[in-house]
Computed example of a mutant assay.
Amino acid sequence: MNDTLHHHADGPPTGPALLLGPSLGTSTALWDAVAPELSSAFRTVRWDLPGHGESPAELIGPGATVAQLGSLVLDLAERLGLERFHYAGVSLGGAVGLWLAAHHPERIDRLAVICSSAHFGAPEPWLERAALVRKSGTDAVAEGAPGRWFTPGFLNGREGRLGRTLVDDLRRTDPQGYAACCDALAALDLRPDLPSVAAPTLVLAGRDDPATPPVHAREIADAVPGARLTELAHTSHLAPAEQPAAVLAALREHFAAPGPGPGMAVRREVLGDAHVDRAQARTTRLTAGFQDFISRYAWGEIWTDPTLSRRERSLVTLTALVAHGHLDELAMHVRAAVRNGLTPEEIGAVLLQCGVYVGVPSANAALAVAQRVLAEDGMEPR
């Protein structure tokens, strides 16, 4: 049996480590909209709870505790060679962070506790939920999850795609692993430990969170010495999925992260915030490494090289995309070329030149794409 928590690592191997903990019923996907940009500065390590995502359910059993979960996280850190690390966690993952900071202060540099609690209420409801899931599976709790996790209507919009993925993750969660985590929440009471937390601590609360209302966050912030509390408007329980930009900004400030780096800054300047935000929102466990590569290498080293101006780079890029028939990318870079100072007439001249040296059919298809894009943006050539 695999005796290690499943994890997903991104970012520079020599960067400061940042462990990202999940909420009950979710997987590493909870951080999909936040981790890629954090990975420009940190070695981010997302992990799955036992029975969740790809972690074995057998890592814990009935009567499990948050201390056991914290020990599993420490085992993972040992295997990765991490003596000290930053930590951010949501709900149950946040409680694991509090336990680590209180009981192993030598391992935690800075801590962020998101939509979490030091005491999740009376044990009976959690034990009843554990019994229900052991009997009927996680489908029995999945129907009510959107109401606990998200503000009304969130799942219906484009931004709700990640939320729908997380609900699907809950349905796939092993019932025994989920129930054991419920047992851990039933037994949890970290309130006596809070004054001993020495790590600089940020507490984030969703103002519309029914699972851990802001009063839970205030209790943590009042008891942890020097802790800072931030409440996020229009936010429910899974804040990294519902308000990734706000969570990212808060974590960057708290963990003293540098800005997103020259690559991400140039990428946004050339392609526009809307395009980059869409790309980040679509990031999955499969594509996260590629997004990191593009930001750090293509945009952070090639596009920032001062040998060529951005205007000249757009000329080269348009030609290369036409030559290889990458019309979807061409549409994006037509808009980028305009941002970099090319006029519609100059873009047309580039594509005409491509007709001579690349081929008439390729140039014809490229002209159709450019004409459509420029027309959509109200910039057709005179």
Rank of each mutant, 00 (worst) to 15 (best):
L59W: 07
S39N: 11
V247L: 07
Q353V: 11
W303R: 14
L202R: 02
P260A: 01
W31E: 02
L38R: 05
A256Q: 12
A217P: 07
A256H: 11
E54T: 12
T284Q: 11
T304L: 08
R285D: 15
W303L: 13
L111P: 07
L232S: 06
F150I: 11
D183Q: 05
L166N: 08
A239Y: 03
A245Q: 03
G97D: 08
D328F: 07
F85H: 05
L330M: 13
V322N: 03
Q353T: 13
E253Y: 05
A29T: 10
L251D: 00
Y178W: 11
A57P: 09
I108M: 02
L185N: 04
L248C: 00
D209W: 04
V322E: 04
L188T: 14
H119I: 09
A241T: 07
L202H: 01
L127M: 09
E376Y: 10
V73E: 07
N156Y: 05
G25I: 07
E54Y: 13
G137R: 02
A257K: 07
A17H: 00
L30I: 10
D273N: 09
L24A: 08
G261F: 12
A279V: 12
T4K: 06
E159M: 07
H333R: 12
T201L: 01
P260K: 02
T14F: 00
L374C: 11
P210A: 09
A199V: 05
F150T: 10
Q353K: 14
T319I: 12
A227D: 11
G63S: 05
V356S: 14
R382Q: 12
T343E: 02
G341V: 15
R382Y: 10
P214I: 08
S314L: 06
R296L: 05
A241Y: 01
G61D: 09
E219C: 15
